[in-house]
Design a protein around this nucleic acid. Structure first.
Lengths: 116, 116
DNA sequence: CGACTCGTACGATAGGCATCGTAGTACGGC
DNA sequence: GCCGTACTACGATGCCTATCGTACGAGTCG
């Protein structure tokens, strides 16, 4: 109730200066994770883990979200039983200007090409 | 000998439409390979494998160059005993406009940050 | 409280991969 | 033809990781 900071459990996120480009690229080099990131980028706000309908089990999904968080690509916050996920877009833009935009554009372009 | 324009041995390269974004990102997510690509991007022309002084053995170096070639990031051509390597910059720019530029800029930014 | 949903932890498994060392092939020059 | 240089092929090794299933913890709602 009231408004405790957020909820009870807090998750570890890398600080800006701990984010490594190689880690970000590795995180995005998995099709499942790239798909998650694309969906997050296209959504207005944060999305819960259960919002995603991935062709893998829940434990594997948990794994992918953790990789994304630990590499610094997304931010995760508990909200009740749900876990909300959002791109760390502003921070990434500060660290690597233009990178996320180019990556998302490239992913969109490839998706369009493969869909035709 | 029939008459190969350049040399005898030809190496398999993926066509433009066979290049996958995930493959490119995976190739660049290795520090050694990112270093190679940065050096290639900064050079005026192609560079031989032996030009690079990497902290790994030659066989490992061969492995990294092959990963880069098979993912579509670089082009490799034999020239005598040497193997010349060059970024497929123009083709990648056509396939994913702005991507390589953003990636190289991000890598340069991180290198500068870590060097200070 | 009890049931239900959401997500986690843990162990197992199978495949991928970065690395090495050694032995070998291709090419150019003497 | 012979030697040296440049790179490769192959096998081994140890680590990383994507995947699963099951059992569990945290929170919500009746």
């Amino acid at each position: 109730m009231s408004s405790p900071a957020v909820s009870s459990r807090d998750l570890p996120h890398p600080a800006l200066d701990e984010i490594r480009l190689e880690g970000v690229l590795h995180a995005l080099s998995d099709p499942m994770r790239l798909r998650i990131v694309r969906e997050l980028a296209g959504a207005p706000g944060d999305l819960s883990c259960s919002h995603f309908d991935l062709p893998v089990t829940k434990s594997t999904t948990t794994h992918h979200f953790r990789v994304l968080r630990e590499s610094g690509v997304i931010r995760q916050v508990y909200r009740g039983t749900a876990k909300m996920n959002g791109l760390r877009r502003d921070e990434l833009d500060e660290l690597f200007p233009g990178l996320m935009g180019a990556l998302l554009a490239a992913a969109a372009r490839q998706a369009a090409r493969l869909d035709d």
